[in-house]
C-alpha cells in the first residue's frame, strides 16, 4: 500500500523542506520508491536540496496545473543526485522557479482539485511507495487538501511561543480531517534546552507523539540546504532523529 505523507508547519523556516528531503533519502535507502512534491508554489526551494538545476527542470508542477503536461512528465529522477548508492528511487516534482511563472500562478490562482488528481495519478503511474508533500507554511486550501488526502502528517515546530499557538491550530484542523497518523518533530532546539524536557512538554500540550526532538545543529546551518544532511552526517543525533521519523512513517 502506498502512503501519502504531508510535512507541514504553521510558521515558516522550521525545517520542512530539509526534513522532507531527508525523509525521502532515508526511505529510498531502505529500497522504497519515493516521490517528493514541492507544493510551495510561491516560494519553492526543495529542488536545491536535491541539486536540481533550473536547466535540468523539464516540466514543473506549474506546467501540470496549466494543463501543459501530465503529472508524470513533471517527475525528475534525482536518485543520482543523492551522491550515495541508494537501493530505491527518488522522484522530485519541482515548482517553477521562474519569476514570471510564480507571478502568473499567484495572479490567476489555480484549481486545488488538480492537486488532488495529480497526487493520486503520480502514485499509480510511477508505482510509488511514498509520496511526500512539502507544503507552504500556514493554513490554506492547498494545505488542507494535502492533509485531507494524506495517510500521515508530520507537523514540525520550533520551541517558540509563536510556533506553540499556530501549531495548536494545525493539530486541531488535522484532527477534524481525521488524518490517520499524525506525528510531531520539534526542530532547532537551542542548546540551553533539555531535549527530553521539550519533547515531554510538547507531547503534553498537543497530545500528539513527538518522534524526534532535534537540536539546533551548526553542521546543518553550515550545509545551508546544499545537500541532504543525513547522507553527509550519518552518525549525527539529528540523523538519528530523522531516521526515527522515517521508521514511524514506514511502520
Amino acid at each position: 500500500m502506498s502512503k501519502i505523507v504531508s510535512v507541514h508547519s504553521f510558521r515558516g523556516g522550521t525545517g520542512k523542506s530539509n526534513t522532507t528531503a531527508n525523509l525521502a533519502a532515508l526511505l529510498a535507502m531502505g529500497g522504497a520508491r519515493v516521490g517528493v512534491v514541492d507544493t510551495d508554489i510561491q516560494s519553492p526551494g526543495i529542488h536545491i536540496l536535491f541539486n536540481l538545476d533550473e536547466s535540468e527542470m523539464v516540466h514543473s508542477l506549474n506546467d501540470y496545473l496549466w494543463g501543459k503536461c501530465g503529472i508524470k512528465d513533471t517527475a525528475h529522477d534525482v536518485t543520482g543526485h543523492l551522491g550515495t548508492q541508494v537501493k530505491g528511487q527518488v522522484f522530485l516534482i519541482p515548482s517553477s522557479i521562474k519569476a514570471g511563472e510564480i507571478a502568473r500562478i499567484l495572479r490567476e490562482g489555480y484549481d486545488v482539485g488538480l492537486l488532488n488528481d495529480g497526487f493520486r495519478d503520480v502514485v499509480t503511474e510511477l508505482g510509488l511507495d511514498y509520496l511526500l508533500i512539502d507544503t507552504h507554511p500556514g493554513l490554506n486550501e492547498e494545505t488542507l487538501l494535502s492533509i485531507a488526502i494524506s495517510d500521515v502528517l508530520v507537523v514540525i515546530m520550533r520551541p517558540d511561543q509563536q510556533d506553540y499557538q499556530g501549531t495548536a491550530v494545525t493539530v486541531d484542523v488535522a484532527r477534524k480531517l481525521d488524518v490517520p497518523k499524525m506525528m510531531m518533530l520539534v526542530n532547532k532546539i537551542p542548546s540551553a534546552f533539555d531535549l527530553d524536557d521539550v519533547r515531554a512538554r510538547v507531547e503534553q500540550t498537543y497530545k500528539v507523539k513527538v518522534i524526534a526532538a532535534l537540536p539546533h545543529s551548526d553542521e546543518m546551518m553550515t550545509l545551508a540546504s546544499s545537500g541532504i544532511f543525513s547522507l553527509k552526517y550519518p552518525d549525527s543525533i539529528v540523523t538519528k532523529g530523522l531516521k526515527a521519523v522515517a521508521d514511524e512513517i514506514s511502520g
Binding site: R107, G109, D111, V112
Partner: peptide
C-alpha cells in the same frame, strides 16, 4: 470523490 477550490488570485 474530488475536493476542489480555486486558490485566491492576488
Amino acid at each position: 470523490t474530488r475536493l476542489s477550490a480555486m486558490t485566491r488570485p492576488l
